[in-house]
Simulated scan of single mutants.
Amino acid sequence: MSNDRSKPWFAPKRYGYGAGLPITWQGWALTVGYVLIFIGVINFSEQDKPGSNFMSVVGMSVFVVATIAYILICAAKTKGGWRWRWGGKP
Rank of each mutant, 00 (worst) to 15 (best):
F54K: 01
I23D: 08
A11R: 13
F54L: 09
V35H: 01
L72S: 08
M1R: 13
M1G: 13
K13Y: 07
Y15W: 15
V32M: 10
S56F: 01
N43F: 03
N43M: 04
V35I: 04
G20Q: 06
Y15H: 15
S61T: 03
R83F: 15
T67Q: 03
M1Y: 14
G87L: 09
W82A: 14
S56I: 01
A19H: 11
Y34P: 07
L36H: 05
G88N: 10
V64T: 02
G20L: 08
S6E: 13
I68N: 05
E46W: 08
I73W: 14
A76R: 05
D4L: 06
W28N: 08
A75T: 10
G81H: 14
Y15G: 12
N43T: 01
Q26H: 06
W84S: 12
W9Q: 04
L36Q: 08
F38G: 00
V35S: 03
G88H: 09
G33V: 14
W28T: 11
S52Q: 09
R85K: 12
A11C: 12
A29N: 09
I37L: 12
G87V: 06
K13N: 07
Q26S: 05
G16A: 02
E46A: 10
L21G: 06
P8E: 02
V64W: 00
P50H: 12
L72G: 07
I71R: 14
C74Q: 04
F44K: 04
S61W: 00
R5V: 07
W9R: 08
Q47H: 03
I68M: 07
T31F: 14
V62N: 00
M60V: 04
V32F: 10
K89D: 11
K49D: 15
N53W: 02
I39H: 00
V57Y: 11
G88S: 11
L30D: 02
W82Y: 13
V62K: 00
N53A: 03
G16C: 02
A69P: 00
Q47A: 03
A19L: 10
I37F: 08
T31Y: 13
L30P: 02
R83T: 15
I42G: 01
P50E: 11
Y34A: 07
I39A: 00
G87Q: 09
Y34S: 09
R5H: 07
P8F: 01
T31H: 14
G20W: 04
K79V: 11
Q26A: 05
I71L: 15
P50C: 12
R14G: 07
F44L: 04
R5T: 05
P50G: 14
T24N: 11
V41E: 00
A11Y: 12
W82N: 15
N43P: 03
T24W: 09
D48A: 10
G59R: 00
P22S: 06
M1Q: 13
K77G: 14
G27H: 03
A19M: 11
